[in-house]
Amino acid sequence: MGEGFFSRGFRGRRRNQDTALPPGQYLEDGFPVLSAGPTPRTPLEEWDFSVVGEVDEPKRWTWEEFRALPSEEITTDIHCVTKWSKLNTRWEGVSVDTLLEGVDTSAEYITAYCDGDYTTNLPLEEVTGGKAWVAYAYEGEPLEPEHGGPARLFVPHLYFWKSAKWVRGLQLIAHDIPGFWEGLGYHNFGDPWREQRYWGD
């Protein structure tokens, strides 16, 4: 639809064309917030992170144990399905590779589960090999609750809803199960470069 159509009188705000953005995205300097419900506030002394499901032995870290794990600094672009992209954002977090170290599993998918009953699903190979982190700091500061603090999943190569806020653990599973937004019309995989926003994209 729309082949050959143009919007009468629309010119658009041309930006620096060297900036490569995924299709349909625009550049944002602020950091918009999106979530489906009230911001959960789990005290750090009650917070833990787990790896469960198809594993020989579930793993669990308290906040202190989690923060003692080796961490990495990541500077990269993020892309929200609501159309904004933000460039060169700086995060600190623990690589999912670190969290899965020594885990023996036949699982091919994960469900990330979160405070506030939010979930998101990902193929295991999209969160391993240096592609995903559990992030606890943004631009050198502890991650604000409204942005997912104390910790959120960080999978910057996919639309940002996959970077689940308030994440509390990963469940390793054999079969893919659509998460919260994925069950409500959003794309199951969510690659911004292929503009996989909604079902069927």
């Binding site: 625009y26 602020g30 999106l34 979530s35 489906a36 009230p38 904004w84």
Partner: peptide, 20 residues
């Protein structure tokens, strides 16, 4: 709302961020 004792599961939100 949560502080007043409302069930967080019955509070649905949608935000207009500083989106341009």
């Amino acid at each position: 709302l949560v502080g007043l004792g409302h069930d967080p599961g019955r509070v649905k939100t949608e935000r207009f961020g500083a989106t341009g």
